[in-house]
């Protein structure tokens, strides 16, 4: 299994960054709930290609981005619908609309596939952003050889997507995508928010519970454990005080024009 390391970073780094990124890399090279390992790696590849996509650049400049006709720069084997989802989330997320999302579904993308794409895209965006912030090269993605090597050691049920859908998932006015009920005690997904309730940003990807588990894992290292997020006095023992964390978080969110 390919591990992520930051040995080339000229600063002392907490080891939990590399450890959590390695856990995500391991997920990336395994079958997900809706996507194969190869598709998951292709999504990660497409995230990086989106940065240089001329069609995305033109849409970013357009007043009505989704009215523009064109073709994304793409070397993967993902379907055009998946590529559209990946590139739009990476390059112009603040202008996505429910109509755009529903259009993807009407053309054949499954809602579970979409949510798994969201989870994979945002994890890569975050990990790549971290590398850029530290001034080092993006970490090499897992390869098909890694997938094959891991596949030889995995149980059969881990090699293909199982399309698991939680029983308590439902469509609501709380989001475009179906989500688990906020009250999830006693369900197989009770581990996602042990307090029994949580914010919509954590629920958002709960149609694919493993995407929430990845979010929890990475956020605990980059920011805070979920149980501490709503406790403004908790500092997590980091070099940054909580108010400094929230200043950075708020500015990044504002620059991304995030209403939430």
């Amino acid at each position: 299994m390919q591990a992520v390391n930051y040995d080339d970073v000229p600063y002392s780094l907490r080891t939990d960054f590399a450890e959590s990124h390695t856990r995500f890399w391991q997920r990336l090279q395994s079958a997900g709930t809706w996507l194969t390992a190869k598709q998951r790696i292709d999504v990660a590849t497409a995230v990086r290609e989106a940065a240089d996509c001329e069609y995305c650049r033109q849409r970013k400049l357009a007043l009505s981005p989704h009215a523009l006709v064109g073709q994304h720069s793409d070397t993967t084997n993902l379907s055009p619908l998946m590529i559209e989802a990946v590139h739009a989330i990476v390059t112009d997320a603040s202008r996505l609309t429910r109509t755009w999302y529903e259009g993807l579904l009407q053309k054949g993308l499954m809602d579970g596939e979409y949510v798994e794409i969201v989870g994979t895209v945002v994890s890569i965006v975050s990990i790549d952003s971290f590398a850029r912030a530290l001034g080092v090269a993006l970490r090499p993605l897992p390869t098909l050889d890694d997938v094959a090597a891991l596949g030889n050691t995995q149980k059969t049920d881990k090699k293909e997507p199982n399309r698991y859908q939680p029983k308590t998932v439902e469509a609501s006015d709380d989001a475009w995508v179906p989500m688990l009920n906020a009250e999830n005690a006693g369900t197989p997904e009770a581990d996602l928010w042990p307090s029994g309730k949580t914010g919509n940003v954590v629920r958002a990807m709960s149609l694919v519970p493993d995407e929430v588990r990845t979010l929890i894992d990475l956020s605990a290292v980059h920011y805070l454990e979920m149980k501490s997020v709503r406790q403004p006095g908790v500092d997590a023992g980091r070099a940054l005080k909580r108010s400094q964390m929230e200043l950075v978080a708020g500015r990044v969110s504002a620059l991304n024009q995030c209403y939430y």
């Binding site: 965006v125 969110s253 991304n256 995030c258």
Partner: peptide
């Protein structure tokens, strides 16, 4: 980098 994820 965490909030580059959360906003998306």
């Amino acid at each position: 980098s965490n909030f580059q994820r959360m906003v998306r």
